[in-house]
Amino acid sequence: MMKSQILTEKETEQIRFSILASGSTGNATLVETVDQKILIDCGLSGKKMAELFSQVGRSIEDLDAILITHEHSDHIKGLGVLARKYKLPIYANQKTWQAMNGMIGEVALDQKFEFGMETVKSFGSLQVESFGVSHDAAEPMFYIFHNGNKKFVMITDTGYVSDRMKGHIANADAYLFESNHDVEMLRMGRYPWNVKRRILGDEGHVSNEDAGIAMSEVIGDRTKRIYLGHLSKDNNMKDLARMSVGQTLRQEGIIVGETLDLFDTDPEQPTNLFTI
């Protein structure tokens, strides 16, 4: 009886997550505790979202809420469909709600909730903290998930990682961290210059090298896993991202495979559910 009780107490402080999809074609992440299942972003079709949930043994019907980071289509493509079909509550900040007008179709007023910048909301046992990033959207923000002493951070879609952001996200157990592009691949690639300039700018996306530098400044004693997210289909490769980030971390005295590990994400396949 005592053993079962101790196990239950441990389980109540766990966070489980799967990066369902990550990339320029669509983004979605599932975060759950013993009493909550939260979807962050819904950037794929309703059919594809159902398929991704099925692959990790979950159902959209069991969701408690959807949190939105910003209004770009690779983050909200399937939002309206899921909202209407499953009557799910949706949380976003005021400027993001305004920007989504006309993009997601009609959503019932009693499903629309405001989640302000740099605030904390409770979803059962899960405490969710929002923080702003630097991206060319109305008011982009990402999320930190706390349960007991466990901490999972999501940070993609930002042109750089400021000291303020680093203060919010330091020493998490696990991260979904943007590693969008290789600078040389981007510079030499087929994109027009105005698109390249946007990606490289302060409101664009973080490169492999800059991601590694930022990681080295926020990794803490309890950090064990970093998932490399939002890789560009045209300007990056999984092996290249892992190698580049790993080399940058090594230069800062952090050896991948010793204290922490790097993991890929994919725009089509979910990562295995993992518990911290």
Rank of each mutant, 00 (worst) to 15 (best):
S54P: 08
Q55D: 10
V56T: 04
E61N: 14
D64Q: 15
D64S: 12
A65L: 11
A65F: 05
I66L: 13
I66H: 05
L67V: 05
I68S: 03
I68Q: 01
I68Y: 01
E71I: 06
D74L: 12
H75K: 13
I76C: 11
K77T: 15
G78E: 01
L79G: 07
G80K: 07
V81Y: 12
L82V: 11
L82R: 01
A83M: 05
R84D: 06
R84I: 04
K85G: 08
K85V: 06
Y86I: 07
K87Y: 10
P89L: 09
Y91C: 00
A92T: 08
A92V: 15
N93G: 00
N93C: 03
Q94D: 14
K95V: 12
K95T: 06
Q98P: 00
Q98H: 09
A99L: 02
A99I: 02
M100G: 01
M100W: 03
N101K: 11
G102M: 08
G102S: 06
I104G: 00
E106A: 09
E106K: 07
E106G: 00
V107K: 04
V107Y: 06
A108H: 10
A108N: 06
D110H: 13
Q111M: 13
K112R: 13
F113V: 02
F113G: 01
F113P: 01
F113W: 10
F115N: 02
M117N: 08
M117R: 07
